[in-house]
């Protein structure tokens, strides 16, 4: 699970949703709105794009679970991902 704080106790600089998932415009400056919040262990970004008016949420994925492999299959079942959006 990603820590919400740095070792100094200051808010961590979390991964950001920097670009609109629909039109690709950067959310910097006056373009759009990005609000980070948390649902249990998940970090979620509520986004509104002032360019294409898309409104939606982006969720940072920390783990992906797969099905139990058959005995003879060489399948990765649990992938730990770095923090990114």
């Amino acid at each position: 699970m990603t820590s919400l704080y740095s070792s100094a106790g200051e808010p961590a600089d979390p991964p950001e949703a920097r670009f609109c998932p629909r039109c690709g415009v950067a959310f910097a400056g006056g373009n759009g709105f990005v609000q980070e919040y948390w649902i249990s262990i998940d970090t979620v970004y509520f986004c509104w794009c002032s360019s294409c008016y898309w409104r939606g949420e982006v969720k940072a994925v920390s783990e992906v679970y797969g099905v139990e492999p058959d005995e003879n299959q060489q399948t990765v079942t649990n992938i730990s991902l770095p923090d990114f959006v």
Binding site: F33, Q35, E36, Y37, W38, F46, W48, S50, R55
Partner: peptide, 22 residues
Amino acid sequence: EHLGTSDKGIILLRSLLSEQIN
């Protein structure tokens, strides 16, 4: 700050404010 799911109303207001500024 650290918002959770019970803060959805606040997120909506901030988003609406952003839209109206635009």
